[in-house]
Simulated assay, not measured.
Amino acid sequence: MLPVNHYINEFYLTAAEVNAQEEMPLSRLVTLIIDTATAHANSLGFGYAHMMETNTSWVLSRLSIDLRRMPGVNRKYMLVTWVDNVNRLYSDRMFELQDGQTGEVIGWAHTTWMAIDMDSRRPTDLLVHKALVDVIQSREFGGEKSGRLLPLRDDSEGYSYTFKVSDIDVNRHVTTRRYIDLITDLWSLDKYTECRVARFEIAFKHEARYAEEAIALKAPHQCPGDVYDTEIRVGDTACALARIEFVER
C-alpha cells in the first residue's frame, strides 16, 4: 500500500478514446497526467482553490514522457504520482504508468510546475507552501528528465493553424492538448502505423490565445535515431518547444 503522499489515478481506455492504432493518443496521456497532478494537489490542500486564495495558479512548465508501449484499448491503467522536489520557483512531480491488469510499468513522466501570479503572470515563491514541501518523496524513477530544447530554423518543415474556440481553456489561453495535437499532426498516419512514440518532451514558453495564427514546425534532431525537434510559433515568438523520438513497432 502506497503512503498518502503518493496518489493513484485508475482509468479504463475505451474505444472512443483511442487513435487509429487502437492506442491512447499522446495528447490524451498528457491530459491524464495533468488531471492526476491536479487531483493529488487538491487532496493535499495546495490545489486550484488554495492557490487562488493568494491569486496564484499552477502552470506546467516542462514535461517529459518515456514509454515502453502506449496504453492500448479496453484495458485498465494506473498513474502513480508523487512530488520529487521543490525550490523557490519550481516543483518537480514524477509519474509512473502501470498496466492495471498485469502491474507492468509501461512508462514514466517528469513534470516541472510553477505557480504564477494571475495579474503579473510572474512566478511566485513555492517555499511558502509548507504543505507542498512536506510531501516530497523519494521513489525510484525509470525515466529521464528533459534536455535542452532550442527554437527551429525558419526553413523548417511545417504548417499553419489558427486557434479556435475549442482550443481555449478557462484562462483563455491555448490548451496543452492542442499543442500536443499540433505536434502529433506533423507526421502522416502511415508514420504512426509503422512507428510508435518512445519519448516525448516539451517546454512551454509563451501563452497563445484565441484567433492567433500559429506555425507548427519540425526538423530532424542531430543525433542517431528517429528523433525530431519541433516548435509551435506565433509570429516570432516560440510558444512551445518539443522533441519526439519514434521507434519501429
Rank of each mutant, 00 (worst) to 15 (best):
M1W: 09
M1R: 12
H6V: 11
H6R: 12
Y7A: 01
Y12M: 06
A15R: 12
A15T: 13
A16L: 15
V18E: 08
M24A: 12
R28P: 01
L29G: 00
T31L: 08
I33P: 01
I33M: 08
D35C: 07
T36H: 04
T36L: 07
A37V: 08
A39I: 09
H40C: 08
A41Q: 05
A41Y: 03
L44V: 09
G45D: 14
H50T: 10
M51C: 15
M52F: 13
E53K: 15
N55A: 12
N55P: 00
L60I: 14
R62L: 10
R69I: 05
M70P: 00
Y77W: 11
L79C: 10
V80W: 07
V80T: 11
T81N: 07
N85R: 13
R88M: 07
L89Q: 05
L89Y: 09
D92R: 08
D92P: 00
L97T: 00
L97G: 00
L97F: 01
Q101T: 13
G103S: 07
V105Y: 00
A109G: 06
H110T: 02
H110S: 14
T112L: 14
W113K: 06
I116T: 09
S120Y: 08
R121H: 12
L126G: 03
L127V: 11
L127G: 04
K130P: 03
A131Q: 13
L132V: 02
I136N: 00
F141R: 04
G143H: 01
S146Y: 04
S146E: 14
P151K: 10
S156Y: 04
S156T: 06
S166Q: 14
S166M: 14
D167T: 05
D167C: 10
D169P: 05
V174D: 03
T175C: 10
R178Q: 13
R178W: 03
Y179N: 03
D181L: 11
L186A: 01
V197N: 00
E201I: 05
K205G: 10
E207V: 02
E207F: 08
A211G: 11
I215Q: 14
L217R: 06
A219N: 07
P220R: 12
P220L: 06
Q222F: 09
Q222V: 09
C223I: 07
C223L: 11
P224Q: 07
P224R: 10
G225L: 04
G225H: 01
D229N: 14
D229E: 08
R233S: 06
T237K: 15
T237A: 11
A238D: 08
L241N: 06
A242D: 04
E245H: 09
F246C: 02
R249S: 10
